[in-house]
Nucleic acid binder design. Sequence first.
RNA 1: GGCGCGGUAGCUCAGCUGGUUAGAGCGCAGGAUUCAUAAUCCUGAGGUCGGCGGUUCGGGUCCGCCUCGCGCUACCA
Length: 708
Amino acid sequence: MSKKLVTSALPYANGALHLGHLAGAYLPADIYVRYLRLRGEDVVWVCGSDEHGAAITIRAKKEGITPQDIIEKYHALNKNTFEQFGISFDMYHRTSAEIHHETAREFFTKLYERGDQFIEKTNEQYYDAEYNQFLADRFIKGICPTCGYEEAYGDQCENCGSTLSPEELIEPVSTLSGNKPEKKETTHWYFDLKKHEKWLKEWIENGTLDGEPHHDPKAWKNHVVGQCKSWLDAEEGLLPRAITRDLDWGIKVPLPQADGKVLYVWFDAPIGYISATKAWAEQNGKNWEDYWKGDDAELIHFIGKDNIVFHCIIFPAMLKAYGDFKLPTNVPANQFLNFEGDKFSKSRGWGIEQHEYLEEFKDFPNKEDALRYALTRNMPENRDADFKWDEFVEFHDKELVGNLGNYLNRILVLTHKYFDGKVPASDVDLTEKYADILHLTASLAKRIELFDFKQAVNRLMEISSWGNTYLQDVSPWKIYKENPDSEEIAECMYVSLQVVTLLSALCAPFIPFTSEKIRNLLNLPALQNGDLNDILENLGAGKPLIDAGHSVNKPELLFAQINDRKDDSRKQIIERQKEKLVAILAQKAAEEAAKFKPVKPEISFEDFTKLDIRTGKITAAEPIKKADKLLKLTVDLGGQTRTVVSGIALQFKPEEVVGQQVAVLLNLAPRKMRGVLSEGMILMAENKEGKLSFVQSDEGFGEGLEVR
RNA sequence: GGCGCGGUAGCUCAGCUGGUUAGAGCGCAGGAUUCAUAAUCCUGAGGUCGGCGGUUCGGGUCCGCCUCGCGCUACCA
């Protein structure tokens, strides 16, 4: 039997996870793994906390605590929350563990010793002399060259969103000492991805590895293969990627000349899958290598779409460079889940985190499965999806309550009513009765195997729906009025109890808590690994899944309706969530209205007079090739005309701006853009929506006049 | 501009390697039923499958062009 190793993206131990994470990489993997276990497969599912990286140290410094405090907090929170949702990892490890440090160092050393995998580069980087430390991008703050924001980081300005490098910051400051950092030479190692480009292309596009078939590329999701191709087909190809950083939090680079350097977190994180497997194997008396290197080993990564390139290109390249490791047979990445029409955003409070949900819904019966179901039903498998509370309610009340829960309840009530809670005997031909549900069951299984969980869970409801329809068609309550001893009643209940038993097992991967409840109500033993095989076999052979004479327990409701006339407590929980969103929107609107951008640092009058701004008129305009946003403008300045390139093409068509009065900054250093030399800058005002408006003098006032 | 993903009923989405009258759930209209958590079941209305062209006996499904949405990327002095 093949050995399957399943991984889910390691959550960064710097914060809690929201519903989008759950729907992206953990819930689908849980469904898949639970299913495989029920089929008796040899499967191991590993995950864990990703606990390195500069973001954690920065946050620690800001909050006056240690990085260790942070990772302890979030490792515990995330691990615990996953457990509560029934996310059934075989191992939830952490990258701060010694076994991981060893594994990652060993991995690095092996590639280093191969000699041809890494490129060593020395360049100048900012250094904080007081702290005796090189500064990672995020340790440097300064003024954003684009928007003038004073708190921009060395990698990104959080005000305008532009991507920066530390060198671009104006007046850079170390966040450690607050001093101006100095430049100093430092050496780093880069992974030479270019060497792997050729076989990666083969592997991704054709599914062949070393000339042998490896996997069916058509079985991979379109967007996964597409994004990989987009990288592999890029003009410049795959660029070398830095594997080391100057930082004191992480895995020390195992080289004598690399004091004060750690492995870049992206390099050590995926190796976490390996060390987690080692830890699991140690605890369970297994050999981890069977799952990573064995001939019959299969590797499957569950991730969100932001991680595709790492798991389909970079990590496979690392594994191949190391040698012996099997590469993933599939990477069923999900897209993103939005929340009520917008992206999840912690800072804006938009969305709900997993542990928050558990807290807010603590009085909501079967809250774990209610959410698991809603997220599965609307999983972002092939495109972005949107989580809405109204949909949550609809799925819950219509499908879990009305279809599944109600069906079980009907069957249990009738079994007690007519047969004293015992499964009646019947000589009905089950093969014939099973025809439809056998087909649906096979389809459900197939869909899970294809990572199509949304369709799979639909099949589950279709089976329940088949049961409801069948019951309605026979209507034993009608027959009972005429002839209480009719064979037909026994037959109908006998068949229905088979269906309910089938549902108790088939629902387990999706809604495990409910599965357990149904098993209890049916007075059946808890499901064991491999049980689904027996069930499928009996189903195919027309044999009963629950025997005549077996006693079932008294009915109990599986799910309590949210829109309940007699009890609005659950509806109130939902309403509270919706109200929170309304409040956030209102607050946001208020803030926007009151916002006044901070004034830039004071300048002297002399500074101002350096600017030479004059009135002008656009006399010609044309688009620039291969540039979406740029227009080439010819501006009449009275005694002179100039060519100015302006980034306004998204909002203005060339013909619209001809004749436009403008103000032009004339003494700005000329600059070539997309092959056109720009000799000035058109002044524009920009509103909150990003809409542009020309700054201009009155029509006919004149060209070339100075603006002061 | 380049690359990728997507555009199917009012809404959310299925439609495998091209093949008979294009499907489901919700919503809507009508009806049946009472075992059941105002649950269930049946019937119906509703789609020029983003647009144009091509390959084919036949295209939602393949190819080309266009268009719209999203993502990455270049450009924004």
